[in-house]
Design a protein around this nucleic acid. Structure first.
Lengths: 132, 132
DNA sequence: TTGATAATAAGAATCATTACTAATAAGAAG
DNA sequence: CTTCTTATTAGTAATGATTCTTATTATCAA
């Protein structure tokens, strides 16, 4: 845990918004002016692979980061890219969750997506080194 | 509806996979060797804005496209980026759906995310032109 | 102190996507 | 049949986010 990594994590924990890599870079640069953008990306990757932060991919092709460890899902604004948290329980059905969104968040709901992430049969077979 | 646009849509409808823009480009190029990658992107955008196809953003920063109009969700391979369909019912709870994934798809399940897309209160107020 | 290892800054390279350009095709109006 | 207008195209340049490379520096065990 280097100084850079600690500050990156600290900045991420200080905000309830979900900043992008370059937003984090800007924040961290105020405390550590010589830090490199590459260092920010690398450490976000390290922190995320250790499960200390979460990486969210946005429809814009950008990624946003989240230091929260609690299990929650997100509401994303299609207009400005803002991301808010939305606590969910796994035993709740989709309709029930969806119905709660407008009330809880104030978002005008347009739609939702459930995405499962895993390893497909093909990749599970391989030694995981080569991509298809 | 130009020849190019028709062929792009046709290729998208022919596959149950969810190809990326460049995969679509490769497929279409076999039938129309002089087509430009820009034309593929532009027409995917047009088709998607008319609601004729769906655009999915991947954690890799790539987008994938889907001609299906039925309501279904996706399973994504974290290793190779493959996307498969996964029919879901809104009255089923997340655990039940998740439990079905491994069996139905053969994927080794790792996790899931529910994402709601909408317009946040701030943007709903504005005339929707200016970004924050 | 010395290698071995890991992390860094700075910047170049890459990849997906978007913007720009001039050329072309398809109508509509005269 | 010409001339305008408008869309669309192929080809290419530009952009933005991310990853990679290289030289350098910090860390640490022996």
């Amino acid at each position: 845990m280097t100084e850079q990594r600690r500050i990156i994590l600290d900045e991420l924990e200080k905000t309830c918004r979900h900043p992008s890599a370059s937003e984090i870079y800007e924040r961290v640069k105020k405390r550590m002016p010589h830090i490199s953008l590459g260092t920010v990306y690398r450490n976000l990757e390290v922190l995320s692979s250790r499960g200390m932060i979460k990486k969210l991919s946005m429809p814009t092709g950008q990624k946003r980061f989240d230091a929260g460890r609690e299990d929650h899902q997100h509401v994303r604004c299609l207009s400005c890219g803002r991301v808010d948290d939305l606590p969910t329980q796994a035993d709740e059905n989709l309709e029930a969750i969806a119905a709660r969104v407008s009330d809880a968040s104030g978002y005008r709901r347009l739609g939702f997506a459930v995405d499962f992430y895993g390893i497909c049969p093909g990749c599970a077979g391989e030694t995981k080194k080569e991509r298809q």
